[in-house]
Design a protein around this nucleic acid. Structure first.
Length: 430
RNA sequence: UCCGGAGUAGCUCAACGGCAGAGCGGGUGACUGUUAAUCACUAGGUUGGGAGUUCGAAUCUCUCCUCCGGAGCCA
């Protein structure tokens, strides 16, 4: 059986094909009507007249509603008047199911209403384009690691305690115990890297922070590579290669979708290696030179990240943050222990931090010392400390926020559109 | 948690102390090239909840609720 899809319709010019889909829109004009058909791969205009199709099909115009499901058989022709350049001269229209009054109309809607209708909103052109770009981003990430001989290692979602002391975790009953939903697979990825060399985990991550901004979700997807025998510079090289690859793949395979989103493609085409690498000290100087009130030792807030990111066309990597504001597992610079061998990658156009990474502390004693400084009990991390007891090596890794990357590449104003069913402080349905 | 903003028809909004309205969507009808088609007619309301001021409140005051944006935190 041959299946025909709208995205490939130009290969079937002058053929009679059968398309299966949904009514995206209807325009009736007496003895001719136009059925805008959507099949999940694209949208095409079907022209229905009594000259070309049977009467029962023609009369469906009085019955069909927006989003009713139909199958249309007809001849593919090229026509300038049709959006997309091709249209279908219908020979037969078969009704599958009549849709009730569709909540999403052709006029504008508010974001809250559309999010309530998220399960239906995904059918719209714009959301369709975002989901396909998201797919390509995820696929390109997996291909990127696969081509570099990384092994995928899935890490647990139920975890005993926090990876980083500060973040608020979702707590859940675990038989007679408590468990927390993961905020990072990193510690497990480190264990896997000692077994397999180069690994990555890719899964959902949960943060119970009461954040209400366009950059935050309570549930988001994160990809975390971890590499044995990597130092900070190699870590940054990898992050830069990965982002360049993702952007190139999207530009090559999702041009139509970027155009649907009215994304300024020149901004993406400008992403070129090498990305600027700025020492934390220089980032502070850059901010101070622009009149921002920051002192050495401060962490960067969203406005700071925006200023640093906007200074360059490509993403910027800021490295050597003060260890005091970074996580316990990040290795301190042997040359000057007040710095951590850490890096954040800031996306252009104000999209902020998309990657956070570091070389890890591989010395047992220094790691225990850092845990104690953070008020952590090393006894709770005995298995993690085993990685430093048995064949410890220099290693590094980073975490990439998938939705922030999607939001940046798509040019979205809010991260909640970057995931099919977003979870935020105030949204658990649909 | 803090700061700001908003809740009026199914949806998007107007009316801002004096008869609650429009567009879209729904219904009925017209139209053989429409592009969020157009045109005519039509149905559709506990103005977020509660209290107060007033001859009179969607409008002013208080309070509660919900949502949105931002900060902090982070991917």
């Amino acid at each position: 059986m041959h299946e025909y899809f709208i995205q490939n319709i130009s290969y079937h010019k002058d053929e009679v094909v059968k398309l299966k889909g949904w009514v995206y829109n209807l325009r009736k004009s007496g003895k001719i009507w136009f059925l805008i058909l959507r099949d999940g791969t694209g949208i095409i205009q079907c022209v229905v007249t009594k000259n070309d199709c049977d009467e029962a099909s023609f009369d469906l115009k009085d019955v069909l509603t927006q989003e009713s499901s139909v199958m249309v058989t007809g001849k593919v022709i090229a026509d300038e008047r049709a959006d997309g350049g091709y249209e279908l001269i219908a020979h037969k229209v078969e009704l599958v199911s009549i849709a009730g009054e569709y909540p999403i109309t052709k006029k504008e809607h508010g974001i809250e209403f559309l999010m309530d209708q998220r399960h239906l909103w995904l059918r719209s052109k714009r959301q369709h384009a975002i989901m396909r770009i998201r797919h390509t981003i995820i696929k390109s990430i997996r291909t990127f690691f696969d081509q570099r001989d990384f092994t995928l290692v899935d890490t647990p979602i139920f975890q005993k305690g926090a990876t980083e002391g500060t973040a608020t975790l979702f707590e859940t009953d675990y038989f007679d115990d408590k468990a927390y939903l993961t905020q990072s697979g990193q510690l497990y990825a480190e264990a896997a890297a000692m077994a397999l060399g180069k690994v990555y985990c890719f899964g959902p991550t949960f943060r119970a922070e009461k954040s209400k901004t366009r950059r935050h979700l309570t549930e988001f997807w994160m990809v975390e590579p971890e590499m044995a025998y990597y130092d900070l510079d190699m870590d940054m090289d990898l992050a830069e290669d990965m982002i360049s690859y993702i952007v190139a793949e999207v530009l090559m395979n999702r041009r139509l979708e970027l155009e649907t989103l009215e994304r300024d493609i020149t901004k993406l085409e400008a992403i070129q290696k090498p990305f600027p690498r700025i020492h934390y000290d220089d980032a502070i100087k850059l901010l101070q030179a622009r009149g921002v009130d920051v002192q050495w030792g401060d962490d960067f807030g969203a406005p700071h990240e925006t200023i640093i990111g906007e200074a360059h066309e490509s993403p910027v990597m800021v490295h050597h943050y003060p260890s005091a504001i970074k996580a316990f597992y990040m290795k301190r610079d042997p040359a000057d222990s007040k710095y951590a061998l850490a890096v954040d990658m800031l996306a252009p156009e104000g999209y902020g931090e998309i990657i956070g990474g570091s070389q890890r502390e591989d010395d047992y004693d220094l790691l225990v010392e850092r845990m104690r400084e953070e008020g952590m009990d090393p006894a709770n991390y005995d298995w993690y400390l085993d990685l430093r007891r048995y064949g410890s090596v220099p290693h590094a890794g980073f975490g990439l926020g998938v939705e922030r990357t999607v939001a940046w590449i798509c040019g979205l104003s809010h991260i909640r559109e970057a995931v099919p069913f977003p979870r935020t402080m105030s949204r658990l349905t649909p």
